[in-house]
Design a protein around this nucleic acid. Structure first.
Lengths: 254, 254
DNA sequence: TCCTCATGTATATACATGAGGAGGT
DNA sequence: CCTCCTCATGTATATACATGAGGA
């Protein structure tokens, strides 16, 4: 009853790649172990998955599955919620600055050759960043993500240092995330005037401390979203459960 | 100003595969054109994108963008919202019965060699099924999806007919989707008793016309979700916009 | 330059799985 | 052995922000 990090021996399906296109020419961080061995995504093999499914070895000091932490020796002792929260936030910011997606991080974890650690899903990284994991799970993942972050930033710095070679095509997605309070403001403005002038937009942007273009696009998207108020409102939705058996609607009750 | 189906000449990144693992041994429908030319996912080429960007052909008689349906002659004349809605719903049900995901459908569209049509993203298929596209867009996509559906079902039937060979490993994900009314009921039950007995669950399941296991899992997930009520509630979230420039918080305003 | 519209990529959320443990009997 | 729970974590779907063609 004690590893908050479970190894997932699943069918690897495809994953793989996922890093290859990070930057058109030069695959970004996440690999390039400290010894310089740039691993660069194995490729499209039939199935390469980070780990051998259920590899019982390498679990290092997983120590017996018995009693929970009572022999103080875990490498990273800050179980303080405040710290966790701060870390999660910094993590996200730095990840984005690196131009790496949550999915990228998840799969990159495998390249980082930490003993009991393989890749994780985008969802898990998302949950970590948004603090929607159990406290124990957060604590268990933190050192791993921290390790990744440091490697990745190191690798990037290296790259910046020897910039010769085509340092060309700078391009990254950069998804802005607008927080709830700002969103509420925007909605209020929208209610009053769904298509503000350029100046108005600039003003709003400044007031909310957002980039003007972000605000502009937000308004465009809102207009687009609300435009098909559904032809006379579609009728209600139903429940299915795949197998064509006894699973129709019955959309009332309670 | 008139094609409601745009060709997307983007960097395809990886996609591909996606069908290969549908059923362990025998890749499911979507390929195997009527002429027998099994195309089976081109692979990881530099960029294979379904079609030539902006193929102006094959768009038939899309008629001017003015008044709605008043010169009935398009190949598929039902622009009626009711029909569209019905189609979308049947589509989803049959897709699921086929054991195919939205993403699968999206990429399979390319294999279906219709002139101006390449692959689409999971999001687009999702939006189609949930009726969150513009009316025109819905109408434009309908015949394509219908074509896919028919092919796929045909292919599956074929497979069923000659079942010799390892018809082994029957396995598919089968995600149930619980509709809003049922969800509300469940929540009400949950509020009263978050861990109902097996019998109670069975009763609820019957009343809502859901599989017992689905209800059981729903309760488990709810408990899990609500268990980490966040250690003393985490502090508020903020806005970022990637570039480390002037984009901190300022989480107040309006 | 800015909009609209189809559609994309990245992220968030809903349903699902499986290992491991706690009782039954 | 069952059966049902918990917990980490997965896959499929839904949603939020972004892009680019075409038009005014």
């Amino acid at each position: 009853a004690e590893q908050y990090i479970r190894r997932s021996g699943r069918e690897p399906a495809l994953e793989g790649e996922l890093l290859e296109h990070l930057t058109p020419g030069l695959a970004l961080g996440a690999m390039a172990a400290p010894d310089g061995a740039v691993v660069s995504t194995p490729g499209h093999a039939p199935h390469m998955a980070g780990m051998n499914p259920m590899h019982p070895a390498a679990l290092g000091m997983a120590h017996a599955h018995g009693l929970p932490a009572h022999m103080g020796c875990m490498s990273d002792v800050d179980a303080d919620p405040r710290d966790l929260e701060a870390f999660a936030e910094r993590f996200k910011q730095r990840r984005i600055k690196l131009g790496v997606t949550q999915a990228d991080v998840g799969s990159a974890l495998a390249n980082l050759k930490i003993p009991g650690v393989g890749s994780l899903s985008q969802s898990t990284i998302c949950r970590f960043e948004s603090l929607t994991l159990s406290h124990n799970n957060m604590i268990a993942l933190k050192p791993i993500l921290q390790a990744w972050l440091e490697e990745a930033e190191g690798a990037q710095r290296e790259k910046m240092n020897k910039p010769e070679l085509f340092n060309g095509g700078e391009k990254k997605r950069k998804r802005t995330s607008i927080a709830a309070p700002e969103k509420r403001s925007l909605e209020a403005y929208f209610a009053v005037q769904p298509r503000p002038s350029s100046e108005k937009i600039a003003a709003i942007a400044e007031k909310l401390d957002l980039k003007k273009n972000v605000v502009r696009v937000w308004f465009c998207n809102q207009r687009q979203k609300r435009s098909p108020p559904s032809p006379r409102s579609w009728t209600s939705r139903r429940t299915w459960s795949a197998s064509g058996s006894a699973t129709s609607a019955r959309s009332r009750s309670a």
